[in-house]
């Protein structure tokens, strides 16, 4: 188990390193930071001097090594071109909002997905089961940002029940969290359903029934506890979907989190910030995958031997 974890950890770090390299080259290929930072009327000599001073005239590989060295040893991602403050400070200000949004979305999605998935499996091919299939199909085809805008139009504009942008109070959280939850809901619900269907045919369920356990106890205590394992694992694998979803949701609802910062930074050419967010997001994804792997291996010894 220990070697398994160490091996996966090294792999995960290598993945992060390559991601940082690709995004660094990609972003610095894109535009000349000197042109972003200096006023448009700057003279050619000024630009050259500035580049030399900032180290932008060095070969790109040297620049990358310098960058990643600072990141690893000093947690220094450089300064934002636009805000002129350390990138990490900018990120730290945004993390709580994104965390609040994602946590609420995961909570809402699972609060609906788990009971609905269990019921769909228990009453297979019933109206409810067919309804859950329909929700899953529709969810797969629904553009998230369109759903967000429609929710704004219906609940914010027509009914006037909820605020449509910003993040000051709890009601502000409802629409973005529901939008993001709708993104996770279909997959989670199908997962609970198929997990339950697998488990319900097992011998120990028959044993539990034979011992006289009530149906509800069988479904919740005996079946769901085992069916939940894939759900937990998938939640680890869902990080990339979730973070991609925050980018969209935060943009639609003007939610002051990392996703909106990322979009604005790309549009404004603020590359140190984009770079930091890409690394941060991929770290989250890789760690999520790693936790899912370790958990899966912990539960199923066959995976460890691979």
């Amino acid at each position: 188990m220990k070697t398994f974890i160490i091996k996966r950890l090294i792999q995960a770090l290598a993945v992060c390193l390559v991601i940082s390299m690709i995004s660094f080259f990609l972003l610095f290929l894109n535009a000349d930071p000197a042109l972003v930072l200096l006023p448009p009327e700057a003279e050619v000599e000024d630009i050259a001097a500035f580049k030399k001073q900032m180290g932008f005239d060095r070969p790109i590989i040297v620049q990358y090594l310098d960058f990643i060295g600072k990141v690893i040893f000093h947690a220094d991602f450089g300064n934002s071109f636009v805000a002129k403050v350390p990138t990490l400070k900018l990120l730290a200000e945004r993390v709580p909002a994104t965390l609040k949004l994602t946590a609420s979305a995961v909570l809402i999605a699972n609060l609906i997905a788990i009971p609905l998935g269990i019921l769909a499996a228990v009453r297979r091919y019933s109206l409810l089961d067919n309804l859950s299939t329909l929700i899953a199909l529709m969810g797969q085809a629904m553009p998230l940002y369109w759903l967000g805008i429609m929710l704004i139009i219906v609940f914010g504009v027509w009914l006037g029940w909820l605020p449509i942008s910003g993040s000051q109070t709890l009601p502000h959280l409802i629409l973005p969290a529901v939008t993001l939850a709708a993104y996770l809901l279909p997959a989670n619900m199908r997962l609970v359903r198929s997990g339950m269907l697998d488990v319900l045919n097992q011998d120990y369920i028959r044993t539990a029934r034979a011992k006289g356990a009530g149906e509800i106890r069988v479904f919740i205590v005996h079946a769901f506890k085992n069916a939940a394992i894939p759900l937990v694992i998938i939640t680890g694998l869902q990080f990339s979907i979730l973070l991609g979803g925050t980018v969209v949701t935060e943009t639609v609802f003007a939610w002051p989190g990392l996703g909106r910062l990322a979009v604005n930074s790309i549009l404004m050419g603020d590359y140190p910030v984009v770079q930091a967010i890409v690394i941060f997001f991929s770290l989250c994804v890789v760690i999520g995958n790693l936790l899912a792997d370790i958990l899966a291996a912990f539960i199923d010894p066959r995976i460890r031997q691979e």
């Binding site: 792999q11 690709i22 972003l27 290929l29 991609g244």
Partner: peptide, 22 residues
């Protein structure tokens, strides 16, 4: 497989946006 893992670790939307920006 390593390349696949790298691609899957990349947040899609940021990669695609950066690519289009480039």
């Amino acid at each position: 497989s390593f390349m696949v893992n790298v691609m899957l670790g990349f947040p899609f939307i940021l990669l695609a946006m950066s690519l289009v920006a480039v």
